Amino acid sequence: MNQPLAYIHPQAKIARNVVIEPFSTIHKNVEIDEGTWIGSNVTIMEGARIGKNVKIYPGAVISSTPQDLKFGGEETTAEIGDNTVIREYVTLSRGTIDKHKTTIGKDCLLMAYVHIAHDCEVGDNCIIANTTQLAGHVQVENWAIIGGSSAVHQFVKIGAHVMVSGGSLVRKDVPPFTKAAREPLSYSGINSVGLRRRNFSNEKIQEIQEIYRNIYLRGLNNSKALDIIELEMKPSNERDEILNFIRTSDRGIMKGFRN
């Protein structure tokens, strides 16, 4: 596409019906799929892989060099899934030698001034609100929502269908289906509103609530709680997802609320 007021490197691979507004810069080793819109004053650097029907608003910087002193210039990527919306002044770093890529899934919304650092993995249908900052190697699973002005520590994992309150400091892993709030970040119940919106049945929501009663409300340590859940509750996808998440947590999970 001829864009006289935008710079597009001749080696960039741009689908024919991509719209690139004036004053944007597209570097080499960039691939942009069909139907995507690039607003004015966007910078897309080497290693960007952008899917179909993505919208990138003015001022965003995609696939920038990682802010990691160990980065040695290795060839890595930053990948954005189809139908994702990247709002104004979002910064997205590409990967390092650890995972070689930073990934944002399909149908996500990254609001203004969000920063996604190197080697992060954000799943599908996630919403990350204004000015939230994700440090390196963070994992955010499908359907998670992170409230505005939150800061997520490196290597933290946020489970599927989680709701993190705005302004949170996320230092520990947040298990799936939960709400997280307060300081220090603590269990605040399950995300029942989000689960109902995604057509979880009342029976399934009650099952998830019972699992977290054992983990957070009975005064048990995590090992004992997980053993009881595995022994007394029927296997299900949700039960096993929670058990696996907690057992494989490297940083440990957030605590229950204490008065």
Rank of each mutant, 00 (worst) to 15 (best):
G105L: 06
G159T: 07
G148V: 08
H137T: 05
K106H: 15
K157I: 02
S188F: 01
S192K: 13
C108Q: 12
D124F: 11
N191Y: 04
A129F: 03
R171E: 11
A160D: 04
N199H: 14
I190S: 06
K179H: 02
S149D: 02
V164L: 11
E210R: 14
N125D: 12
I116S: 05
T178P: 07
V152L: 02
K157W: 05
K204V: 15
I116A: 08
G136K: 11
E207N: 14
S201C: 13
L169D: 10
V138M: 11
G166H: 11
Y187V: 05
H100R: 14
N199C: 04
L110W: 06
E121V: 06
Q139I: 14
S186L: 01
L195W: 00
S192A: 15
I104M: 11
S150Q: 06
P184I: 08
N202L: 14
A181T: 14
I104K: 09
V156W: 01
E183H: 13
R171Q: 10
A144S: 10
Y187T: 07
K179I: 15
A151R: 09
Q154I: 00
P176I: 09
A151T: 10
D124M: 09
I127H: 07
V122W: 06
I116G: 05
G147R: 05
A112P: 01
L185Q: 07
Q154A: 01
H161T: 01
S201H: 13
A135V: 03
I145L: 12
Q154L: 00
D173I: 07
N199L: 09
Y212Q: 12
I205C: 12
E141H: 12
S168E: 12
N142C: 06
H115L: 12
E210C: 02
N142H: 14
Q133Y: 04
V114H: 12
A135R: 02
H115A: 14
M111V: 11
K106P: 01
A144P: 03
S201V: 11
N130L: 05
Y212L: 11
R182H: 11
Y113H: 14
I116N: 06
V156G: 01
R182S: 14
G159Q: 07
G166N: 13
Q209R: 15
A144N: 05
Q133M: 13
A160T: 14
I208F: 10
V138C: 08
N130E: 06
I146K: 04
I127K: 01
C108E: 13
K157V: 08
Q209N: 11
R196M: 06
C108M: 13
I145P: 00
S201M: 12
Q206W: 01
L185C: 11
E203D: 15
D173Q: 07
E207T: 10
P176C: 09
R196H: 05
I104N: 13
C126Q: 03
